[in-house]
């Protein structure tokens, strides 16, 4: 294993590809690390105990960039006349606050900061897509890093990491606000109300089971669709950037056109992701179904 890593390190330099297929495959491969028999293994991993180093690296760096930018504004925030930077940050804060107030009827101090973090973080991660696809990977290759995917949101682990966190928060608040009984009622007494008297009582268990399956599937489908929507959009966009990078000199206008269109996708998908987060958490706080 160490031998292979050394071999790959020895290939450090300008990347060379045998075919278009290899080029695409190489660009869709994460830089992975795992432990095998007490040793660190790079890029020959399988199974759950693997870490996508590039996704984690860029996600954390961009998250820190977000915290740094907004933290700077927060530290210097004045109630008087704001500077241009503070005004810009406040514009975003106000936008997110407005979205939360529109979409969230309950009272919870977590929702607004959560929405802001998700929105800006996802925007930043999506924006990595606008950097020409070979710049960072080629630079990495020169330094001996053989694989690099620079857009964290094209990694399904990242989008699922976000959506599952939101899902767990939803479950937590559902249990906290409605109580276990209330939550269970919500899952079993909808959409068909089971009969409570007469012969219908015999059918009630079946109706409850039916409701539970239906609502359970709907519940589980939420984080899946939540993350797959973002992942699918960004992955497809990234793939098209890679394909455009294969067509030679004509990639310049094509890349520009697709990038302009992609700016829309970048912000829109981040906004959709934030809005869905708000809507799901609002559902967790709503006492009536």
């Amino acid at each position: 294993m160490e031998h292979e890593a050394a071999e790959e390190a020895a290939h450090a330099g300008w990347p060379h590809y045998e075919s278009a297929g290899e080029y695409i495959e190489h660009h869709l491969q994460n830089l992975q690390v795992c432990r095998d028999h007490g040793e660190w293994v790079w890029n020959h991993c399988s199974g759950f105990m693997t870490l996508n180093v590039d996704s984690m690296f860029f996600a954390v760096v961009l998250g820190v960039v977000f915290l740094w930018l907004f933290g700077r504004a927060a530290k210097r925030a004045t109630t008087g006349q704001p500077g241009k930077f503070q005004a810009f940050i406040e514009l975003i804060i106000d936008f997110v606050d407005g979205s939360v107030k529109d979409g969230f009827s309950g009272k919870n101090k977590v929702i607004a900061p959560l929405s802001l973090t998700i929105f800006i973080w996802v925007v930043l991660m999506n924006t990595m897509d606008l950097i020409p696809v070979d710049w960072l990977p080629a630079a990495g290759s020169m330094m001996g890093i053989s694989y690099m995917k620079v857009v964290p949101t094209t990694d399904i682990n990242v989008t699922f990491g976000l959506s599952i966190s939101v899902f767990l928060l939803t479950i937590y608040y559902s249990l906290k606000i409605k109580g276990p009984i209330g939550f269970l009622k919500e899952l079993t007494l909808n959409p068909i109300a089971p009969p409570t008297k007469g012969l219908g009582l015999l059918a009630a268990p079946f109706i409850i089971a039916f409701n539970f399956i239906l609502e359970g599937v709907a519940l589980i489908a939420r984080p899946v669709s939540h993350s797959l929507r973002l992942f699918g959009n960004m992955f497809a966009g990234e793939l098209i950037f890679i394909l455009i990078a294969l067509v030679g000199i004509w990639q310049l206008p094509l890349h520009f056109a697709w990038a302009v269109f992609h700016i829309l996708v970048v912000t829109l998908q981040a906004f959709v992701f934030m809005m869905l987060t708000i809507v799901y958490l609002n559902g967790a706080h709503a006492t009536e179904h």
């Binding site: 994460n30 105990m49 998250g63 973090t117 976000l162």
Partner: peptide
């Protein structure tokens, strides 16, 4: 395209970022 530890790492990063945002930024 497999699920791996990144999922958990990302979740932890998100919790930390959201906590920080909630505490010091918002």
């Amino acid at each position: 395209m497999d699920f791996n530890l990144t999922l958990i790492g990302q979740s932890i990063a998100m919790i930390v970022f959201v906590w920080f945002c909630m505490k010091f930024i918002w």
